[in-house]
Design a protein around this nucleic acid. Structure first.
Length: 388
DNA sequence: TCTGGGGTCCTTTTCCTT
DNA sequence: TCTGAAGGAAAAGGACCC
């Protein structure tokens, strides 16, 4: 298989080039206020330099992305906004705008599928493509096709895009990082020693901070060092599955096909509160949030045409510890009251002595509504003994 | 002053059945 | 009825990704 990984630079605003800008925040009132301020200034053509600063932000949010000028101060994706404000208080803060990203995301993907139909979604701004059967896909090792796709995306959306071309998904993803932004990189099997092995293990998609730490402890820092380890040793140290995967990945091996469609496994809604809430003292507020999450989730399921039979909750406490509880019931549901009732049962089994910072509701074991057996006629028993 | 939200997948633990 | 082994499903936790 010839794989192609494209990642669009979805969050770049050309007029912000050179300025320290971060995009972030959540969906709480402070963030809606920020979004309103932003819209107001944009409507009056107020220069970007006069937009709200990171130092002015009060709230619980993280950075979604940052310009290179902002990264120079040490801020980056997933960092708390309060912490980032210490490092770069003068950075301009823009609110996240998911509706806009989704719009550009679908345009980006539509353009790609018109050229190369075998495409796998990897989130809002990334895709894999199998271009084995795309006419002209092999010209100059894929570079001609990569340029064609970049140009088509830029002409339609004004967005730039980085591309990696390689024999499989694993290597294509790594290659796409080589010449960001707006770059093209082609990696052949024979480039493994020279281009891949010198890289840090963290560059392998799937090795995160924890796995990296463990590797480092064993003196393994680069992919080349990982490749030099014995398969049996890796399996003994990391477990049979992970060990075998690490070994294969370090040797540039990856058999996963490009998957053009997939069914969702679960859907969820969660929210972090503006301030930590107490299960007893803030019972009313929590109960209202709980009900609203269930309603939103039921709405998501119904809109997308799914039902599920596992309902779960997630709690995150003020110390950031989290727990989950779930129950699998004997019928499929997408009903808000039903979800609320089952989630309420889950809640009874959770510890509630610490203050909460987040509450989430999840429905799993999904089936498309059309395939699901019709639920038996069961009136929901009245909610009794609910905690909140 | 910390640390969003929406997912997938894997491992370990627990529980139930045979 | 007790005890233990084995296997599967469900539950819980956690790593990871965008």
């Amino acid at each position: 298989m010839d794989a192609f990984y494209a990642s669009v630079e979805l969050l770049r605003y050309p007029q912000l080039k050179g300025l320290p800008v971060v995009i972030g925040g959540g969906r709480r009132p402070a963030d809606h206020a920020l979004a309103a301020q932003h819209a107001e200034r944009a409507a009056h053509h107020i220069p970007v330099a006069d937009f709200p600063r990171l130092a002015d932000y009060q709230g619980r949010g993280v950075i979604t992305t940052a310009t290179y000028a902002a990264r120079a101060f040490g801020v980056g994706s997933a960092m708390g906004l309060m912490k980032a404000a210490k490092l770069c208080p003068q950075a301009i803060l823009l609110p996240v705008d998911f509706a806009r990203y989704r719009h550009y995301s679908s345009r980006f993907k539509r353009i790609i599928t018109e050229i190369a139909p075998v495409m796998e979604n990897r989130g809002v701004d990334e895709v894999y493509i199998d271009f084995t059967h795309v006419p002209g896909g092999q010209r100059q090792g894929g570079r001609v096709l990569a340029r064609l796709i970049q140009k088509a995306i830029y002409d339609d959306t004004g967005l730039t895009c980085s591309v990696g071309v390689a024999p499989n998904k694993l290597l294509a993803k790594m290659a796409s990082e080589f010449h960001k932004p707006n770059g093209i990189a082609i990696v052949h099997e024979s480039d493994l020693h020279t281009h891949i092995w010198p890289l840090a293990c963290r560059k392998i998609n799937g090795i995160g901070p924890k796995a990296d730490e463990k590797l480092q402890k064993h003196g393994i820092h680069t992919i080349g060092q990982l490749a030099a380890r014995d398969l049996q040793w890796l399996m003994d140290t990391f477990g049979p599955r992970t060990g075998a995967w690490l070994h294969a990945a370090a040797h540039g091996l990856d058999e996963r096909p490009v998957q053009t469609e997939s069914e969702p496994v679960s859907m969820s809604r969660e929210t972090t509160f503006e301030r930590d809430l107490h299960a007893v003292r803030d019972k009313g507020e929590l109960g209202a949030i709980f009900t609203r999450l269930c309603e939103q989730l039921a709405d998501d399921l119904q809109r997308k045409g799914y039902v599920g039979k596992t309902v779960g909750i997630k709690l995150r406490f003020s110390d950031f510890q989290s727990v989950t509880r779930d129950i699998t019931v004997d019928h499929f549901t997408a009903d808000a009251q039903d979800i609320r009732r089952i989630a309420g049962q889950c809640l009874k089994r959770a510890p509630l002595d610490k203050k909460l910072r987040l509450l989430g509701v999840r429905v799993a074991t999904l089936a498309p509504l059309a395939d699901a057996p019709t639920p038996p006629d069961r009136p929901s028993p009245p909610a009794s003994g609910q905690l909140f």
